[in-house]
C-alpha cells in the first residue's frame, strides 16, 4: 500500500507543470524515503530528477517499494482538477494498476477522487555520480527565467561563462548578438539590509530578489559552456517552485539546474552541453 498526503497540493501541481512538457511517460519510484522520479526527454539530451521526501508529506505510508508508470500529461490533467489550496492524497495498491488522486478543499466539504491507469514503462536509468562542480551559481529564479527567455528571441544557444565576479550569458543569431552579465552581489548586499522607517525605527528585512540579481558564485575554476536555450526555457517552468535557482557547472559536464521545494526536496534538471566541431 502506498499513500501520500500533501497539504499544499499546489506544490504537486507546480511540479507536474514544470516537467510535463519535457518528459512524456515516467516511472515514479515510491519508497520509504519518498516519492521520486528520474526521466530523460525523448532526445536523451536532458534529464529531470525529482525528489519529494516522505518527511515533507503530511501523511506518508509505503509498505513496499512501488514503481508507478504514469503519462505525465494525463497526470497533469487530473491534478489540474485540484484547486491550489486543496490537499492532495495519492493512493495505490502494491499490485494495482491504478493510482488514485484524492482532492479535499480546506473546508473539507468537497472531496473528489480521480483514478488514473498506470502503465508499464521501459526506462533507462542513468547513474549520476556525486560531483564537485567547478562553478556554482545561485541567483533569482525569476531573473534566470527572464534571461533565458530574452536570449531565446535572439539565438538558439546560450554560452554561460562563470568567473569569480560574474556570470555572463551570451547568444548570437541571424539578427545579431546579446550579452547579459550578472555581477556577483557583494557579501553586504546579499545579506539583510537595514531600512529606517519613521514609525518602527530601525527594521531589518530581506532584500527582495526583484530589486536585484542576488547572484552568489562559488568558484573553483572559471567555466564556459554552451547549452540549447530551448531546454533551459523548459526548465524555467519550475520557477514558481523556488525564489532561487542553483546552476552547477563543470568543464565538459552537463549543467545541473536545481529548484528546491520547500521542506520537501528538489527538482533538478540536467542538460548536456553543446560542443564546437
Amino acid at each position: 500500500m502506498f499513500e501520500a498526503r500533501i497539504l499544499q497540493g499546489s506544490i504537486l501541481k507546480k511540479v507536474l507543470e514544470s516537467i510535463k512538457d519535457l518528459v512524456t511517460d515516467a516511472n515514479f519510484e515510491c519508497t520509504a524515503n519518498g516519492f521520486a522520479l528520474q526521466a530523460m526527454d525523448s532526445s536523451h539530451v536532458s534529464l529531470v530528477a525529482l525528489m519529494l521526501r516522505s518527511t515533507g508529506f503530511d501523511h506518508y505510508r509505503c509498505d513496499r517499494d512501488v514503481t508507478m508508470g504514469m503519462n505525465l500529461l494525463n497526470m497533469s490533467k487530473m491534478l489540474k482538477c485540484a484547486d491550489n489550496d486543496d490537499t492532495i492524497t495519492m493512493k495505490a495498491d502494491d499490485a494495482g494498476d491504478v493510482v488514485t488522486f484524492m482532492f479535499e478543499n480546506p473546508k473539507a466539504d468537497k472531496i473528489s477522487d480521480f483514478q488514473m491507469k498506470l502503465m508499464d514503462i521501459d526506462t533507462e536509468h542513468l547513474g549520476i555520480p556525486d560531483t564537485e562542480y567547478e562553478a556554482t551559481v545561485k541567483m533569482s529564479s525569476n531573473e534566470f527565467q527572464r534571461i533565458c527567455r530574452d536570449l531565446s528571441s535572439i539565438g538558439d544557444t546560450v554560452t554561460i561563462a562563470v568567473t569569480k565576479d560574474s556570470v555572463k550569458f551570451t547568444t548570437s543569431g541571424d539578427i545579431g548578438e546579446a550579452n547579459i552579465t550578472c555581477r556577483r552581489t557583494s557579501d553586504g548586499d546579499m545579506k539583510e539590509e537595514k531600512v529606517k522607517t519613521e514609525e518602527d525605527g530601525e527594521k531589518v528585512h530581506n532584500t527582495k530578489s526583484s530589486e536585484g540579481q542576488n547572484v552568489d558564485i562559488d568558484l573553483q575554476e572559471p567555466v564556459t559552456l554552451t547549452f540549447a536555450l530551448r531546454y533551459l526555457n523548459s526548465f524555467c517552468k519550475a520557477t514558481s517552485l523556488c525564489e532561487n535557482v542553483r546552476l552547477q557547472l563543470s568543464k565538459e559536464l552537463p549543467v545541473v539546474v536545481q529548484y528546491l521545494i520547500e521542506d520537501m526536496g528538489y527538482v533538478r534538471f540536467y542538460l548536456a552541453p553543446k560542443i564546437e566541431e
Binding site: 536509468h125 547513474g127 554552451t226 548536456a272 566541431e277
Partner: peptide, 14 residues
C-alpha cells in the same frame, strides 16, 4: 557549429 551532446556520453546506464 555547436553539436548537441547526449547525456549517455556523460553518465552510465544503470
Amino acid at each position: 557549429t555547436a553539436v548537441q551532446n547526449n547525456l549517455a556520453e556523460f553518465y552510465s546506464l544503470m
